[in-house]
Amino acid sequence: MVEAVRIYLLLAGTWMRSAAQYPASMVMLLATQAVATFLDAAAILIVFAHTPRLGGFSLPEVMFLYATSGISVAVADITLGTVERLGEHIRHGTLDTLLLRPVGPLLQIATEDFNPRRMGKLVPTAVMLVVSLRHLDLHWTLARAATLPLMLAGGVGIFWALWVLAAAWQFAVVDGKQAANSITYGGAYVTQYPLSIFGRDALRGLTWVLPLAFVNWEPALYVLGRPDPLGLPVFFRFASPLVAAVLAVLAALAWRTGLRHYQSTGS
């Protein structure tokens, strides 16, 4: 594990130096990423310009959901987002060269093109978390305060697993990257909002089938002091890390299976 982190930092650092060759492009990309994140938030502000509550939730509450989801997605994307390029590596035969190094291919693809732009989403969402917390007017208890880092960590873990699953899927369907986006970027999109607005059936699906509810919804209900519309036991509010762990095991299995059955292209 320590070795993997060492290699990860080494590779990421090398790509950073590589990116430093094009400073103007990097600054522009970093800025656009940040602006894009703010525009997403602007969309929420536009919605709330017309209504004080969305699905029963206030603006600071939705901002809290938006920010916690955004931070989890940003951290997962920064560290692992490029694994979705697996399909390209298979198509171009470059996965073969990655397999020749004494370092796992997942690590190599995850660090690929590592550059400052990846931070573009993290800073704005972190700012929004602070802003939303200041407007929330919550009675902070130790348990509430402890739930916040727990949900962020669980969210990161869930998105890590989703990204690896999305990559592993491309071992089976090489051109399937965009379909996999529906769980990675789709997951990032729905968790910005209170999941209850999508209806009870969707909420059940997002709890039991594709457990995106554990990214931030379930723990946020506890932090915001709201009842669970599905009436699930209190334990579910704190289950994020457990769900993340289960998904991580599934993702690791899928990745290994895919790699083992990998059929390299002709030459």
Partner: peptide, 9 residues
């Protein structure tokens, strides 16, 4: 036909 070297470094 495939280099493993870092292109920009």
């Amino acid at each position: 036909q495939r280099t493993t070297l870092w292109w920009d470094l």
